[in-house]
């Protein structure tokens, strides 16, 4: 017994080092696997509070920009309203902005935004108390931002689309050919759409929108335009470079979308198994 204690005391630095190293590597590995990074996040009382305080100072410098975006969005909504009144067939307006009541929108403020790393996260002000849930979609008036990943009482962490772990279903606006949205970690304004079948009519400048296969985002939310594209190794799928509509380096306010029937659909799908 005495010898064991002596051994522990003599090697206490090494043991301490190894223990903490295993702990930090565990946290690192966990952060690299999707749906598991739950222990350490910036969506807590202290970090959220500090980010919120700092953002309160910074946000004044962007007010003009945010106002412009709001006016632009109002213009679009007014146009849509006018078009809806005039047209005879209401069914023609099934564009991005006319969602049925399956989805509920909430507003949140971005208080921290990363875009220079491989795995980027966004912290927003708004949590359980304002009705946010994990796996809610996050968008702005211009395009998609990411998916809510962890929620605390007053703050939430969002996995940005600029994260190597995200895979979002997206499609061409003109045809219904779809693929997965991934990020290669290079340019924060450029994102990649992979696994688009060769038959799809891909053209430079075409718009990419969210697809209907996702329970997180409504179909038809704008993402970006095609910059260039190439066939992959075995010449059967396209890899497409997309220029985002959103400026990911300056986000401001976001909408958080809740899909009210998500649980029901998931339950239905799990019956098959």
């Amino acid at each position: 017994m005495q010898q064991i204690f002596n051994f522990l005391i003599r090697n206490k630095n090494n043991i301490l080092f190894l223990l903490l190293l295993v702990l930090s590597l565990f946290l690192t590995i966990q952060s690299h696997s999707y749906h598991k990074s739950k222990f350490i996040s910036s969506a807590n009382f202290v970090t959220g509070g500090i980010y919120g305080w700092a953002n309160g100072v910074q946000s004044y410098f962007h007010l003009e920009e945010y106002n412009k975006r709001l006016m632009e969005e109002n213009k679009q909504l007014h146009n849509l309203l006018a078009a809806t009144k005039d047209s005879i067939t209401l069914e023609t307006i099934t564009d991005s902005s006319s969602f049925n009541s399956v989805y509920k929108f909430r507003v949140a403020k971005v208080i921290n935004n990363n875009y220079s790393k491989i795995d980027n996260y966004i912290t927003i002000e708004g949590g359980k108390n304002s009705g946010l849930k994990t796996e809610d979609g996050v968008i702005t008036s211009q395009g998609i931002i990411g998916i809510v990943d962890k929620v605390t009482n007053n703050y939430a962490r969002v996995i940005s689309i600029l994260n190597s772990e995200t895979k979002i279903n997206a499609q061409l606006k003109k045809s219904d050919h779809f693929g997965s949205l991934v990020w290669d970690g290079k340019d924060p304004n450029m994102i990649q759409l992979i696994d688009v079948p060769r038959l799809a009519p891909v053209k430079q400048g075409d718009t990419i929108v969210t697809g209907g296969k996702s329970l997180i985002f409504p179909q038809g939310i704008p993402i970006g335009t095609i910059v260039d594209f190439k066939l992959d190794g075995n010449e059967s799928y396209y890899t497409i470079n997309i220029q985002l509509f959103n400026d990911m380096t300056n986000i401001g306010y976001v909408y958080v979308i809740e899909n009210k029937i998500k649980a029901e659909i998931k339950e239905l799908e799990s019956v098959d198994d």
């Binding site: 930090s24 690192t28 996040s41 910036s42 970090t47 980010y51 996260y121 962490r157």
Partner: peptide, 14 residues
Amino acid sequence: TFEDSGGINAAACL
């Protein structure tokens, strides 16, 4: 914790 980066800074500092 602030950067949402798992334990990479902790490991490096350690």
